[in-house]
Design a protein around this nucleic acid. Structure first.
Lengths: 145, 145
DNA sequence: TTCGGTGCAAATTTTTTGCATCTAC
DNA sequence: GTAGATGCAAAAAATTTGCACCGAA
């Protein structure tokens, strides 16, 4: 079906090297060494590779789609503040589809779980800012409210 | 914080009337009766309403973001062929975040599950097409493969 | 040789934003 | 009265597509 081209290999290898890259990040990684590759080709190859399940996709709100070369199925955690994506610690739940099989005639094939939260880095920043604000205040001790 | 405007109410009411509308569908529903409303306003209000958790969002690959006014948290099933979205039968798993809490410093707040499959309508169409093809063939009975 | 893939750039699609005006509080 | 919201239209961001040429099978 799809022919083996140099560009296809470049896209796959770039995706495998990176953590949860967007199409643009993959393009940028390749274009350094191969200045002639085009975004269109990267998008077309990413489409092929996800259609044949060689790559997975992770959906992020307010940003570009991301790709994932990790072979065993797994879940993701996304920071609601900075958009960082990382793999979740929860093991893949093989029985999840069985439990949801009553979905009105839907034939379920797989599932994704996305955990939303705040990553370590953002949590640290927030804590630092909060300290800052409290220093500026007049040490409000016991005002009921 | 956010003022109560006619447009805010229109966006919320439209979202509550529809199943899993996109921003464009909400805009189209409103603009019939209120021709002066703009897409920008619809987007701004959807942003406010999701930020304050009055509306939820469902992410669909290869298409626009969708919104969801169903109050209790729940999951979604998406047809990989036609993109149809419907609520999943699996009850919300309150303990899901506890199980994944080991995520390297992530403070988890909530989670989404998306089930991928083929909806009733698409499954019916595929079955019909398959029958069509087999009628056209020379009734291949027992050719070992 | 053939047909799918590529590069390029323009087109689409989806969402955001600048600015003058308006209005809820 | 004022700061936030709106309408409009242009811009930005993300992705797809048409077409002439190239190259894998």
């Amino acid at each position: 079906m799809t022919r083996k081209t140099i560009q296809q290999r470049l896209v796959l290898e770039a995706a495998q090297r990176m953590r949860h890259p967007s199409a643009e990040e993959i393009y940028q990684a390749i274009v350094r060494k191969h200045p002639n590759i085009s975004r269109g080709t990267v998008y077309r190859n990413l489409h092929n590779l996800t259609a044949s399940d060689v790559l997975g996709r992770v959906l992020i709100p307010g940003g570009a789609e991301r790709f994932d070369a990790t072979t065993p199925p797994h879940y993701h955690a996304v920071c609601k503040l900075c958009g960082a994506v990382q793999d979740a610690a929860l093991p893949y739940q093989d029985r999840m589809q069985d439990a949801a099989a009553a979905c009105d005639g839907f034939v379920l094939e797989k599932h994704d779980i996305i955990f939303w939260g705040i990553c370590k880095e953002c949590a640290t920043q927030i804590a630092a800012q909060k300290d800052q604000v409290e220093e500026e205040r007049p040490a409000k001790p016991t005002s009921g409210g």
